[in-house]
Write a protein that binds this DNA or RNA. Structure first.
Lengths: 135, 135
DNA sequence: CTACACCCTGTAGCAACTACAGGGTCAAGC
DNA sequence: GCTTGACCCTGTAGTTGCTACAGGGTGTAG
């Protein structure tokens, strides 16, 4: 398999595949006589794994750990579970934060009376608390 | 006001203040005889605005636009409203995506039977669809 | 007068790619 | 046999929004 084929099979860009190789996530494949990368099914499997984990929001470092763990089939699955749970907690925090921010922004937008910028409540909300002695 | 004072007044790091100056978000202040930056209340106001907008998740580019708009007090507030609404839509999309991802991850974790990695449902879920003819 | 907190510039680093520049390879069509 | 065009190669620089030095200078308190 050439890099373009591997890339399209995993919905990845060619540059990203090379990047994963460079940072050691994807092992360097064999080369053809013309110096083209020649991938096998094990590369396809590994890259699929990486992409799936990335889609679930795992960082590349987490993916690296998961890959290492998944290579040792005899090991307990607890470490894997742990990584996933930590990640879940992080996502929950993000959703909470983002929802709070969303509501705040919604409130700010709702206050807009569509006048001029001078009266704009959005700008006003963003601006500093104006004290009387500061013009 | 020295840079450290401005920074702590706006809960910003000193390096970040200098960074905002470098990218043209914050105008270069006057300098003291010792070449220290000397800020006035207009800098404090502007930096407060930037931080508030950043806290609401606006990108620096959006902040730049908002600052430009807020400088023209006579202008209609519609452009401001537009930027904020686009941003709100983006946040909504993010929350939706993140929630879907969260549930997917929760499902994956829930399937964990705490055995060995060989039987780990998490790893399995991340791996490629295994077809019979590929070992 | 010396210690220490603060300031200065400039550069490099972070995640996770993405986008060139400037070349080489390969298969198809004439 | 030759050209065209799609693909591949390496290497470097850009993206966002900072953060962290390195290697200096300034200002003030004891």
């Amino acid at each position: 398999m050439k890099i373009g084929e591997l890339a399209s099979a995993t919905a990845t860009k060619v540059e990203t595949v090379r990047y994963y190789e460079k940072i050691g996530l994807l092992p360097p494949p064999a080369r053809t006589s013309g110096n083209y990368r020649a991938y096998g099914s094990e590369h396809l499997a590994r890259l699929s794994f990486i992409r799936r984990a990335r889609d679930l929001g795992f960082t590349l470092e987490a993916v690296r750990e998961l890959l290492t763990l998944s290579d040792d089939k005899a090991q307990s699955c607890e470490a894997v579970d742990g990584i996933a749970r930590v990640h879940l907690t992080e996502i929950d925090r993000k959703v909470t934060d983002l929802t709070a921010l969303r509501n705040e922004l919604d409130r700010v937008i709702g206050s807009c009376r569509h006048g001029t910028v001078a009266d704009c409540k959005i700008i006003e909300t963003l601006g500093p608390r104006v004290r009387a002695n500061i013009v």
